[in-house]
Simulated assay, not measured.
Amino acid sequence: MSDHIARLRALDTCAVSDALDRHGIRGVLVGLQPLAADRLIAGRAVTVLLGPPPEDAAGVPGRHLGTAAVDASGPGDVIVVAHQGRTDCAGWGGLLSRAAVARGIDGVIVDGAARDLAEAAAAGLAVHARMPTPVTARGRAVERSWGEAVEVDGIPVASGDLILADAGGVVIVPAALADQVLTTAESVAATETAMAEAIEAGIPVSDVMGKSYEELTDGEH
């Protein structure tokens, strides 16, 4: 496990979101929910771009969507499926979940619907998506590419960017800014831990959550 991933695992999405704010970076994916295997996801993005089947099937990969990315991934990787927010069909399913677990993949993020979520949960794979659906992608969506830069919820995501997902949501940290964002997030988390200890010690919350708390996300944008 890389140092960045180990540091990411020690944080939560709220601290990372605050750090992204401080650095003026949009990195929170809105509307995604944990739908299988209630546990934290942390790792490097491996991207998959989906789209409607073209009228001319020439050039469309002759394989099921997501399979190449899964086969090329392993521990410390998170599959990120750019499904354009579609909920009319699944951008991820049960056999892919089983294959991801077999490869040691840390989790899956789908900007759209996913299916076979009970199967994913039984296999131990954490999946965040917009909603569950039983509708297959066959005949409705195809893989356009994998491993290339995509856009998810209006936010650019490249393979190698850091992904953190927990009960609070999903955040993305650009790989080139990982050190700065993680250092800030660690500072935010330490400050909030000290504040929590002060509250537990009986200090009024109005004193604890004063000006210094409001300035936690201040920074030069």
Rank of each mutant, 00 (worst) to 15 (best):
A149T: 12
A82E: 05
R63M: 11
L182V: 05
R86N: 15
G62T: 04
A126K: 08
P61H: 11
R138C: 13
G43Q: 09
D207W: 08
E143K: 06
G51I: 05
V173P: 01
P75H: 13
A99N: 06
A82D: 09
V81N: 00
G93F: 08
T87S: 09
V142R: 08
G124L: 12
L11S: 04
D116W: 09
I105C: 04
E151R: 12
V110L: 03
A167P: 09
I105F: 01
V152Y: 02
E55I: 13
D153Q: 10
L40Q: 15
V188F: 03
A196M: 03
V110M: 01
R63T: 15
P52G: 10
A72Y: 04
A190V: 02
P54R: 00
E200D: 12
L65C: 09
T133V: 12
V108Y: 06
A129Q: 08
K211R: 15
G94L: 13
I25W: 08
S97N: 04
I41S: 07
V150Y: 08
E220M: 14
A15K: 10
A45H: 11
K211P: 07
A102T: 13
V101R: 12
V108L: 11
R86L: 13
V127N: 09
L182N: 02
A58H: 13
A201Q: 13
H221M: 01
H128R: 08
G219W: 06
P54G: 07
L8R: 00
P75A: 15
G94T: 06
